[in-house]
Design a protein around this nucleic acid. Structure first.
Lengths: 227, 227
DNA sequence: GAATTCAATATTGTATACAATTTTACTCCC
DNA sequence: GGGAGTAAAATTGTATACAATATTGAATTC
């Protein structure tokens, strides 16, 4: 893991400009600097990121591939607008895959994996107590990504990663419902318990409940703010 | 539908160069002109498509977004190599979504939809009798796309479309097993019958069987040719 | 023969300028 | 006030040349 970390650092420093622009632009979308529906004009991005138009255009194409933006020929790019219909559809697919991966992780999961999940969950509970939402988002992701890695279906993981970026832009803007952090803690505990027992039915039930509740909370938050 | 077709034609003629290159390059990949793993050098693509490097680069980024190619920074692009592991993973996810969409289509399906499926199936059976594989591929896709449209979850449909492109490159190269066309006919009939009855369990069973068999046939074909 | 080093060549990435298309602003007319 | 037409301005798309990086081939060493 240490070598992997170092290799990752080397790769990052050597990234071409278009990759660095893509990362920065994604951050700016997720953080809300460029809000839902915002027109992304190349001249403005040139000013903001201090590069020429070519890496901007490359980065935009890549982010379109990730689903974060939409490019219309001859008209330019804008941040994807996520209405409730889109969110419902996305979450329906997300639930299929997330439940499948969580259940499939039983095939390969080991005690060290369960220990790791417990550790992540402990950190999540501390972060939740401190209302450190940023850290909660990161740890929630780590929790699930750890499970996906055990499940070992990159195709599924990649689709969920795309969804996660879209969901995260909404979470940044709309936040969590008042009880959501406590609910997540309970739901994660249920998932850990079921995985520890390698109980397929319980895992499926716990993962489904987690997904259903996340979807309901986000839709509730969006409706509350009158998107 | 007529207006939609005309609008499609207008859009196509007005497409920028990078869109036209993307379409042509996709065709060249799916048809096997650029086979699995092939390095896609920009200079060669410039010669082949008679455009400058910029629309080539844009098209490559878009096709990466579709999953057909892989771009490595500073090293260039190559056609995605689809090994058995990748195919298994992809089909596992594909099956989740396809079964879900087929079952969900029950919510909205009307008699005219069932009639349309029967019509498509009739054409498929004729094409199969004539061993017109190209037409079989198109009609099989139309059959499923018709169901997905009724299901009305574009997120799911788009993931399946990406999968379909990848699968199609393999089908073009490796063809079908000797009994596969007859099996597809039987499987499609079962799907139609179950949809006609709006029988959730039967639809789920028929759609699952169709997916499982398609996966098994393709993997068998690939293994046979020693890819 | 295999491994290493280095220079030449090939290829990808980027900047700049110009071409093509869309948008905006203005005027005129009903 | 709204619609139509037109020109100017803004923006996207593309070509070309050069910069940066990777690959290949040759020479040297063990």
């Amino acid at each position: 893991m240490k070598n992997s970390t170092e290799a990752g650092l080397v790769e990052k420093l050597a990234d071409p400009t278009y990759s660095r622009v893509r990362e920065k632009l994604r951050e700016d979308i997720v953080s809300g600097y460029f809000p839902s529906g915002k027109r992304l004009k190349i001249a403005e991005l040139i000013d903001r990121y201090s590069v020429s138009q070519m890496p901007i255009r490359e980065a935009l194409q890549q982010l379109q591939g990730e689903g974060l933006i939409i490019i219309e020929p001859n008209k330019g790019a804008h941040v994807r607008q996520i209405d409730q219909g889109f969110l419902e559809n996305m979450y329906d697919i997300r639930q299929l895959i997330e439940v499948y991966l969580t259940v499939k992780s039983i095939d390969h999961i080991q005690d060290k994996d369960v220990k790791e999940l417990i550790q992540i969950q402990g950190k999540y509970e501390l972060a939740a107590k401190k209302k450190d939402y940023d850290l909660c988002v990161k740890l929630n992701k780590l929790f699930h990504v750890t499970i996906y890695a055990v499940a070992n279906n990159p195709e599924g993981s990649q689709i969920l990663e795309k969804h996660w970026q879209l969901i995260n832009t909404l979470r940044f803007t709309h936040g969590y419902g008042p009880d959501r952090l406590a609910e997540v803690i309970e739901e994660h505990r249920n998932i850990i318990k079921a995985l520890d027992k390698r109980d397929v039915i319980a895992v499926e039930k716990a993962a489904t409940a987690h997904c259903v509740a996340a979807k309901a909370d986000l839709i509730s938050q969006i409706s509350r703010r009158g998107n």
